[in-house]
Amino acid sequence: MSERGPDTCHCGLPAPYDECCGRYHRGDAKAPTAERLMRSRYSAFCVGDEAYLLRTWHPSTRPPHVDFDEALRWERLEVLRTAGGSYLDTDGTVHFRAHYVLRNRPRHLEENSRFILQDGAWLYVGPVGSLPGIG
């Protein structure tokens, strides 16, 4: 069962989706930090926003499309650690654990993701280092 309340965005921050990640998905604002971009991308997976995911993926690693598994339900996000990625940085990493349920089995995805600032927008590059993948 998801721990998200009615006034909590999918990303886990204490704000409604429309005021939190929804504004990034709509294009009303850009994520100001690598962590906020990571959180908004997690929310985009929750709501199935392929356009946002592709728009915020660095061109060097961007896939042609995003496959959403209908049997998968995202439950909650834990941001474990960040390095760089602030207002004054041009790159950063976010180590996170995303919990989900697949075919009634709880699982998680853990990744240390790299982000870079390009033309005033944070972009997801991909995983760095080696972490346990899907558990």
Rank of each mutant, 00 (worst) to 15 (best):
H108K: 07
G12F: 07
R114T: 04
V128W: 07
H65F: 13
Y124S: 06
V79N: 09
C9Q: 09
R114L: 15
P106S: 05
R23K: 14
T90N: 11
H95T: 13
A29L: 14
L102F: 13
R62T: 02
T8K: 00
N112S: 03
Y52M: 06
V79P: 02
R97A: 09
G27E: 07
T56N: 08
D119E: 15
E19D: 15
Y42R: 06
R55S: 10
N112V: 09
G85Y: 03
E111L: 11
R26W: 05
L123D: 01
T93M: 03
V94Y: 02
G22I: 06
T82M: 07
T8L: 00
S113V: 03
A98F: 01
H10E: 14
L13G: 07
R103H: 14
E75K: 11
R97N: 08
R26G: 11
D28P: 10
T61E: 07
L102Q: 13
E78V: 13
A98T: 04
A83Q: 15
C20Y: 06
L54P: 07
H10G: 02
A34Y: 09
Q118E: 15
S43F: 01
R97I: 01
T8E: 15
C21A: 08
H108C: 12
V101F: 08
V47W: 00
E110N: 03
P63K: 13
W57L: 01
R107T: 06
H65C: 04
G92V: 06
P32C: 09
R97C: 11
V94C: 09
E75M: 12
T61R: 11
H65Q: 13
V128T: 15
F115A: 03
A51F: 03
P64F: 02
H65W: 10
F115D: 03
L54F: 09
P106A: 08
Y100Q: 01
M38D: 03
Y17L: 09
C11S: 08
A83I: 04
C46V: 14
G27I: 12
E70G: 10
F45H: 06
Q118S: 13
R76H: 13
Y24P: 02
S113W: 04
A29I: 03
R23S: 13
V47P: 00
L72G: 06
T82R: 11
C21S: 07
I116R: 10
R39L: 00
G48F: 00
R73D: 09
H65S: 15
G126S: 08
R97T: 05
Y17K: 04
P59K: 10
R26A: 15
L117I: 06
R41V: 06
H10N: 08
W74T: 10
R41D: 01
